[in-house]
């Protein structure tokens, strides 16, 4: 399959239209369901489309984050027999920068400083930023608001992961989980990842889209074995 065909057929097009506005998105899931896998697929989609992605990983090592990309890209190539996979991987490597922090080492000020270093010295000018592992429960709302301002000021597309509590998943209601409500309003787009009521399938549901580009209720699936997004 050609890269262009892969991009066009990517199920993520439902969430990220090719010519859509730059937005701030949130993927909500309880621990261990596959938030990182989704963010990496979103990042890879951007990279395949020639975007530059800054991946901020909090609490995960550089090696592990890199391994996510490697494994998911390998699965993508295997599933689609993508042409010139080695060349594409080279481009991915060139257009991606992973920044890792330990759990208590990340802050809006630090992010702003690092981003400034990258952009002002012309080292890396990202189009998209993926932030994985923020503990929203302990982060001040003002910090989050500041983060949004930094992202907006740089004109970036951004995706975050947010964790909700295990006991909030039993409900069949498709809505923003209680523990995410304190900050979900800061995002333009929110997606909920959960086990479906029959516990057989991982379902990704759009629960909020302020731009109206995506219809709330739209559904994608996540293969529990490979963690790949499917229609």
């Amino acid at each position: 399959m050609r890269k262009e065909d892969f991009i066009a057929k990517n199920p993520l097009r439902i969430l990220i239209p090719e010519s859509g506005p730059k937005r701030m998105g949130l993927v909500m899931a309880r621990a261990g369901l596959g938030k990182t896998a989704i963010l990496v697929q979103i990042a890879l989609d951007g990279l395949l489309r020639g975007k530059r992605v800054l991946h901020v990983s909090i609490g995960q090592s550089l090696e592990k984050t890199r391994a996510w990309y490697y494994d998911i890209f390998k699965d993508m190539v295997a599933a689609t027999t993508m042409e010139d996979a080695a060349g594409i991987q080279e481009d991915i490597h060139r257009n991606r920068l992973i920044m890792t922090f330990n759990e208590d080492g990340f802050s809006k000020a630090k992010f702003e400083e690092r981003l400034h270093d990258l952009v002002s010295q012309n080292i890396f000018r990202p189009d998209c930023v993926v932030v994985d592992g923020i503990d929203f429960a302990t982060m001040e709302r003002a910090e989050l608001e500041g983060l949004r301002q930094v992202i907006e000021a740089q004109g970036l597309q951004a995706w975050f992961s947010g964790r909700y509590h295990r006991d909030e998943t039993e409900t069949s209601e498709v809505e923003i989980p209680l523990s995410c409500r304190g900050y979900a309003d800061l995002f333009d787009l929110a997606i909920l990842l959960r086990m479906d009521p029959e516990q057989k399938n991982l379902v990704l549901t759009v629960v909020k889209d302020e731009s109206g580009a995506t219809r709330p209720g739209n559904i994608l699936h996540l293969d529990p074995a490979t963690l790949m997004i499917n229609p």
Partner: peptide, 21 residues
């Protein structure tokens, strides 16, 4: 960190990642 990244960038380096602790 900024200076280190800049110095590598000037040397045709591709910054692969950073780790802060």
């Amino acid at each position: 960190q900024g200076g280190i990244m800049g110095s590598l960038n000037q040397r045709r380096g591709i910054i692969v990642g950073t780790f802060e602790e």
